[in-house]
Design a binder for these strands. Structure first.
Lengths: 209, 209, 209, 209
DNA sequence: AATGAATGAGAGTTCATTCAT
DNA sequence: TATGAATGAACTCTCATTCAT
């Protein structure tokens, strides 16, 4: 029903403190995504987790705390993306590197589309700390693209322009898959979407030769 | 403090039923935008409107009703945009028409950026009816751009491609000004933003020659 | 729709203070009967009366005041009944007098059945004064029957018994038409009802022979 | 102060979920009876129950829900009455059976007189379901009496007549103890009342021999 | 570790009554 | 006389969090 939270279940049998948290996080994420943060009650999260309210509060401090935990889960994905971004750039030319980076970003973002949408929508309800963390992610994503773009400008593959803004453009054109799902989801497949957007971006910034 | 709801005050002195509603709508919009729909209480709206709760309920039926009223206010803008879109196309070539449409959309969307962001974020808390209305707006915007793009493809100015998806791309690249304000707002002016995005889009779809 | 409030409209054209009150009383009575005293709002009464709230308050002091006015209207009926009761007794024997009193009471009570039911149900929401007045009516009704019954006992037509209790029995057996309407109304006509109850009562108290 | 709700307290020490509900029901019943359903607030019920509002809502779903629970409590009494009615008829003649049925009904109804009165008065404020249930009770009572009366007519002990209407008469003549308490309560004892009414009814329907 | 009853502040909404026009 | 906007206390119900068991 709920697609793409991107947070995977670990071995259910291992009911230690860590996996209990994970169990709660997954239930909460699903509910938050479906109903929104404020409309989801702690009772519902407990019920969905298969535990009681009292027990839930053994593993989390407050309702808002769960948000931080969900973010932690996502962190791994982001870090992977950024680390691999560096590698790609060093191994191929800027055009190919950008192509690859876009593909990886789009596929990742599509995988966690629900969560992605969720952050877009609940920004207002996050604590300042959480909001700050979220922005840092975004800045890092943008920076990753920016480095590739700047390299391409330097090497003459891309025309000279505001690369950082383009980096954000790329991110937004990918996130679209999540927040315009009501249109894109029906309109085309992820592969078609990826191809279209890649073409648009590359045609938009490449020096014609 | 709150920028660009786009809903303007009429003559304050004229405290008739219509203007009272407007007064409430503006206060509510500002609060909704700042705090979110669910975190804004009816009492706050009343206080911000300079009236009491009881009085507020003379002018609105329910809290959710206010949302519909806010949407009504916006409708005028949207209709203007769409109507003028038709004219532009008939008066100039597709490239120029697109350029103009983009400019008009970007400036309009920037003007009501807060409200725009608000709709992005509160979708979940709208009634089905309201959600439907919102989507209809979006479809109409996209259709306006789509018509220009298709004309351009036909005339050979634009390369053949999925024009409807591009139409949505344009919208998203404009809405960015609202939902990535934390970056774009600091990074450049609206005019620079407009120029960058227009270039990206046109370079992305124009047939080189 | 609403049957038998027994309060009749005077000449509508004569919109003086008295008839305005009557207009309000009639509207209020209909609403009170249909929805109950507490669930009827002053706004509804005004709307049903074809006037505004402000105007309504020119003619009545408080919502509760309307109850008193409704009672006043009913007073006339009650007084008529009691006055005529005296006459009947002096003109015929006790059996016939009782028979006639029962018939008159039943027909009167059936005519104002809704109002009758209303008093039964809203006793708790009346002011002490109103409650007292209502009881006085009841006592007078009972006393009327009681006098006939006592005369019949004295003359040997009725067996010796607690006549006052029987008087109340008679009243209750008549009011049934109102508060058991869900059964009696479907089960038989008022005439059949009257005949059955009269028989029951007379057979119950007459000396055989 | 409040007499005869007929709902008895179980062991107070046993504060489990069931008894908590009972505690609430009893408090609510007392308040509803004294002040009426609409004039009794949830806060009052909570205070009277010795708990807080929040706690109260652990045990009941809505204020109206309490009504259903009160009805459930009464159901037991009603079922007992009806079950025993069958037995009595098979063991003695119709006259004696009726006498017994009347006595049992009168004593039962006197025991729960407040509740009885309450149902009479709050019919309008019940949900359709609740209203339906209440009528079913009444029909069953009437049917119980009706069976005895029909048997008596068949055996020649009672004169031929509309037995179902008489059945309702009997019920009403018993309920009087509740809804005319302001008179009957002062006028005579329950035993005297029972004797008078029994005589009236039996004299009213028996074939003289 | 696990429970779920208890809390109480605060949410949206209603409504009898007043009063300036 | 007539209006209807304005009031604000009071209503029912919700929910994150605590804590004794």
């Amino acid at each position: 029903m709920v697609r793409g939270t991107g947070i995977k279940a670990k071995n259910e049998a291992n009911q230690d403190s860590v996996s209990r948290r994970l169990q709660i996080i997954r239930a909460a994420a699903a509910l938050f995504i479906r109903k929104g943060l404020l409309k989801t009650t702690v009772r519902e999260i407990a019920r969905e987790s298969g535990i009681t309210v009292g027990t839930l509060y053994h593993y989390i401090k407050t309702k808002n705390d769960i948000m931080s935990l969900i973010m932690d889960e996502e962190l791994a994905l982001v870090n992977d993306f950024i680390r691999e971004g560096e590698k790609a750039l060093s191994q191929s030319g800027p055009v190919e590197a950008l192509r690859l980076a876009i593909e990886r970003y789009f596929r990742m973002t599509a995988e966690i589309q629900d969560l992605n949408l969720f952050w877009y929508q609940e920004t207002k309800n996050l604590s300042p700390d959480q909001r700050k963390r979220l922005l840092e992610y975004e800045y890092q994503f943008a920076e990753t693209f920016n480095r590739i773009l700047m390299a391409g400008c330097k090497s003459g593959h891309f025309r000279d322009h505001d690369t950082l803004l383009t980096a954000h453009d790329i991110i937004v054109l990918g996130d679209m898959w999540a927040f315009r799902r009501w249109f894109v989801g029906k309109h085309c497949t992820l592969d078609e979407f990826l191809k279209h957007q890649t073409n648009l971006i590359l045609s938009g910034i490449c020096n014609s030769t």
